[in-house]
């Protein structure tokens, strides 16, 4: 009885900790963007950019963030070319999301160039995070 009680408390602490890590990573990054002159950040703008399609200049193919992450962030996505499974991006179902600054930066760099053909601005990255953190 006592053990189960302890286990529940422990689990509670762990989820809170994961939640905190995510909050602090998003906060730190958004603070960084604000220092660069961006803000305030809007989830609605983030969502609009998330679904927006862009034509790739070379291949003529249309890309959006949903190409690999699908139209349901709570579900697993698939890499468009290699077929490799991508775990859900929504922090509500995947506690590991948005918990590592270097990881987020690396994928923003790659994915923005892939979809938009250029790096995202601090404003855009802040809006994306505002949208993603609530998913």
């Amino acid at each position: 009885m006592k053990l189960r009680f302890l286990a529940v408390i422990l689990m509670g602490c762990m989820t809170t900790l994961a939640g905190l890590a995510q909050a602090s990573v998003v906060d730190t990054l958004q603070q960084e963007y604000k220092t660069a002159g961006a803000g305030p950040f809007s989830a609605a703008k983030g969502e609009k950019m998330w679904v927006e399609k862009h034509k790739d200049a070379e291949s003529g193919k249309e890309f959006s963030c949903q190409t690999c992450h699908t139209d349901d962030l709570k579900k697993s996505g698939k890499h468009e070319k290699t077929g490799k499974v991508i775990d859900p991006l929504a922090p509500s179902v995947n506690k590991e999301r948005l918990t590592d600054i270097k990881f987020v930066n690396k994928w923003f760099l790659r994915n923005c160039k892939q979809v938009l053909g250029r790096e995202c601005t601090p404003q855009e990255k802040g809006d994306f995070l505002e949208y993603l953190k609530g998913q």
């Binding site: 070319k81 790659r110 160039k113």
Partner: peptide, 12 residues
Amino acid sequence: LHDHFGDNAELP
């Protein structure tokens, strides 16, 4: 790596 088989795989 920035132009990796039609993908971007740039590393830090």
